[in-house]
Design a protein around this nucleic acid. Structure first.
Length: 216
DNA sequence: CACATGATCGCCT
DNA sequence: GGCGATCATGTGG
């Protein structure tokens, strides 16, 4: 049986090297991931996504997210309770990772929220590593996964366990968070217009048309 | 800026 | 068999 296609090589971009411990970053507690999904999506703007590869850590500061609200959200993979092997990680307890493969060449990473059995998640759309990497390296969900070497093999991982992908709280800073409709879900009817996309208004790494970068 | 298109293939109906 | 939670590139205004 041929190995499953994962979309990208697993090595992260060397420019994303960093040390979460030296920076004093702290992980989110489990309870955080059980809060309202929309609120979690907003709070994650400014948080740090980290990936371990070999003896090193690589990471970036998240600057754009989208909330997907489960069975009642026509844009969500779990719409109407759809439950297939691919989507299964969305049904795990909040704090797990859900990664899917699309368009034959890209992976997209999500942070699962809510108690086990409620399939809501937050798509990580863009991130930055100012001063170390160009602003366009992680400016889009597919590019974010490619740069950090995140692929299907990471789907289902627990961000709070001793595994290779982690999420840390933002450092003390105030982030101006803009809101807009979600990108790439025009097929979802009314849900396509829901204001569930959140982004750092002061970041150059946010993806999507400039039209959707104005505040609320 | 707005569209339009090709690449590429797993997933679901 | 059709399409997608994308991206890069191309055209035209």
């Amino acid at each position: 049986m041929a190995p499953r296609i994962t979309g990208k090589a697993s090595a992260p971009d060397s420019r994303l090297r960093f040390d979460p411990l030296a920076l004093g970053l702290e992980p989110f507690p489990r309870a955080f991931y059980l809060l309202d999904t929309t609120r979690v999506a907003r709070t994650i703007v400014g948080a740090w996504l980290a990936r371990r590869h070999g003896n090193h850590w690589y990471g970036a500061r998240i600057v754009e997210t989208e909330a997907y609200l489960g069975s009642t959200d026509a844009a969500a993979h779990s719409y109407r309770g759809r439950r297939t092997p691919r989507v299964e990680p969305m049904y795990l307890e909040g704090g797990h990772l859900y990664v899917f493969f699309v368009y034959g060449m890209h992976c997209c990473a999500n942070v699962v929220t809510q108690p086990a059995g409620i399939a809501e998640a937050i798509l990580l759309r863009a991130a930055e590593m100012t001063g170390q990497a160009p602003a366009n390296l992680l400016s889009g969900p597919g590019k974010l996964c490619a740069a950090l070497g995140i692929n299907i093999s990471h789907s289902g991982l627990d961000l709070l366990a001793d595994c290779d992908v982690r999420l840390f709280q933002p450092r003390k800073e105030k982030v101006r968070v803009g809101v807009s409709r979600r990108i790439g879900v025009d097929y979802a009817g009314d849900a396509a217009a829901w204001p569930l996309r959140f982004f750092d208004m002061d970041s150059d790494a946010v993806s999507g048309p400039a039209k959707l970068r104005a505040k609320q």
